[in-house]
Amino acid sequence: MTSIEDYVATIDNALKAVEATRFSLAAARRTGDSTSETLHGITAFGAVKTIDTANSRLADAVNGLALVAAAAAEARSIAISAQGLTAVPPTVTVVPPIRAATAVPRDVRRPHRRHTLAKIQPKDAPKRHNTVILPGVDVDSDMARIRDGESEWDAQSRTHTVNGRRYGTKDGGRTFPVDGPGLQPMSRPEYKALLIMIRHRGDLAEAERRADFEPGITGSDWDAALRVFRRHPDFRR
């Protein structure tokens, strides 16, 4: 299929041909060369015909686009009325793919609750790297500052840094904590030990028996998890 760009290029080339022919025609007239004058005249005529043809096709293409746009608008209108929605003005956004990549995601949502210490559930799935938000961190304030453009954005890692805390971003705006003050990175075995403590509601003797049975959880994993669990509401002294 020939694109509008192709038609524009054809017109451009034809215009260049007319310009060159006009120059040659003037030179032939100056020298009195009637044969050259006739030949250049024929060439110029051909170039003008090419322009006319290209112009005509370009107009067809533009009309075609208008028809497509009208059909799309009608389909949209039907869809809206079918859903009983209020029509909103159609928007046309042209975003070059590479330029779109530079956009900083500011429309962020706070991390999933599984990252917040007091809200972790025993059935939550540990990842290889987990970061727990400790009590006292004002996540909502961090999110507000990100939305207000007050964070430092790293495009490579797709992370915002605000108040010294780093948050990753997922497609759709969901954030997740990475590291920084009040954000505790935990390995998978450490997080699993923490889940066991939470499952046993602070009965550390029972929790430890279970953790000992889990392959992959070491004594140092248990100790690291316990340091975090001491901040949990279920922790009993």
């Binding site: 990549a101 530079t102 609750r113 599984r114 059935k123 799935a125 797709r158 497609d171 969901r174």
Partner: peptide, 28 residues
Amino acid sequence: VDLDETALESGRLVPGPVHPPPTPADPA
């Protein structure tokens, strides 16, 4: 894959498609 957040609430892992994040822009 990405995991369905609603299913995650109950500890279930339900995979869904990833919408790849945009790659960093070229210098141009």
